[in-house]
């Protein structure tokens, strides 16, 4: 089966729409951020529904989706946040493969649940593979469309990767995530837990935090109970990762997310587990969250069971 290229015109770009895949691993030692989908689970579900390989790129939509004109007939799926997708004015089902006929328009409306939606298309969004990934990292101007979010009059090409598609294929209702506006996220003790007072980890777990407006793909500045250090808040710069909870001298935590720098020099009190990254990705400014501390062993088990569930629901089909 030879994939046919397909053209999509960007009539309106949406608030912050970027090309993302599962990220750019392997170059952190050169200062390159991993980036990739904030909610990798939602992107992967979209790709698997369409029969795409897991590494296919999709669009990550933030709060307000774009308006897109499909020049050619194309199968798509919208997953993640419910931003009220419509096709030529008619509501589209989420987490389901639907066909966009030639000349049809995809639009988004009210945000019903979550913050970030994923538009996946049969064969994936085309973008140059840079350092083995198509992900956009805006801070370094790398990946996607010239390293930037979509803008009006951009043209997207799709369908380069072969995939086997089935109209109507859907993720069972019972398996669709519920994105809460005040979730409890699980953490394990961080690498510098000993540089905080004994109370700090309890305080983190006992008190709710608010996601401030200084929150983006790099990380969320949180506001809540102060987390006291024993000594200085600075350490010799070392690796940090998505999920790291850094506490700078102002004692308010920063939850690092997909676009975080590969290294950092603040003490890290805890690390959010990977299985809860999707829940965190769906938070926006004003939402609140709580933390609960679990063991690293439990965190690994949760990661494995999340993976097993995905394999059971939607086995990979791509080449």
């Amino acid at each position: 089966m030879s994939p046919k290229p397909s053209i999509i015109h960007v009539l309106r770009p949406g608030l912050f729409t970027t090309v993302q895949d599962l990220g750019r691993l392997g170059y952190q030692r050169f200062g390159v951020s991993v980036s990739g989908a904030m909610d990798p689970w939602a992107l992967t579900v979209g790709n698997r529904l369409l029969g795409n390989p897991d590494h296919a790129a999709g669009l990550e939509l933030t709060l307000q989706g774009p308006e897109l004109l499909f020049e050619h007939r194309l199968s798509i799926a919208v997953t993640g946040a419910d931003l009220s997708p419509t096709r030529d004015g008619v509501a589209l089902p989420m987490w389901t493969v639907v066909t966009m006929p030639a000349g049809s328009r995809l639009q988004f409306g009210t945000r019903r649940q979550g913050t970030r939606a994923y538009l996946t298309i049969a064969g994936g969004i085309e973008a140059p593979l840079l350092l083995e990934s198509r992900s956009t990292h805006v801070q370094s101007g790398l990946g996607g469309l010239a390293g930037r979010p979509l803008k009006k009059n951009d043209t997207l090409a799709g369908g380069g990767l072969s995939g086997r598609c089935c109209e109507g294929r859907t993720l069972a209702q019972s398996s669709r995530p519920q994105y809460l506006t005040s979730p409890t996220l699980r953490v394990i003790p961080g690498p510098q837990v000993g540089r905080f007072t004994e109370a700090a980890l309890h305080l983190l777990a006992m008190s709710p935090y608010r996601v401030t407006s200084e929150s983006d793909r790099m990380g969320y500045r949180l506001e809540g109970a102060e987390l006291p250090h024993r000594g200085p808040a600075d350490i010799i710069s070392e690796a940090v990762s998505a999920g790291s909870i850094q506490v700078p001298p102002n004692r308010q935590p920063i939850l690092l997310m997909a676009d975080c720098q590969p290294t950092g020099g603040y003490t890290k009190l805890a690390t959010m587990i990977r299985a809860d990254r999707s829940l965190a990705a769906q938070l926006g400014p004003g939402d609140s969250l709580s933390f609960v501390v679990i063991s690293a062993k439990e965190a690994s088990a949760l990661f494995r069971s999340l993976h097993a569930e995905l394999e059971r629901l939607l086995p990979p089909q791509g080449p």
């Binding site: 952190q28 030692r29 690796a239 494995r304």
Partner: peptide, 22 residues
């Protein structure tokens, strides 16, 4: 092992928990 990140005084080894463990 999926990524290795050397810094001033430590190196961080990223791994796939489906294929290995700490």
């Amino acid at each position: 092992v999926v990524d290795v990140v050397p810094t001033y005084r430590s190196t961080t080894v990223y791994f796939d928990p489906l294929r290995t463990d700490t």
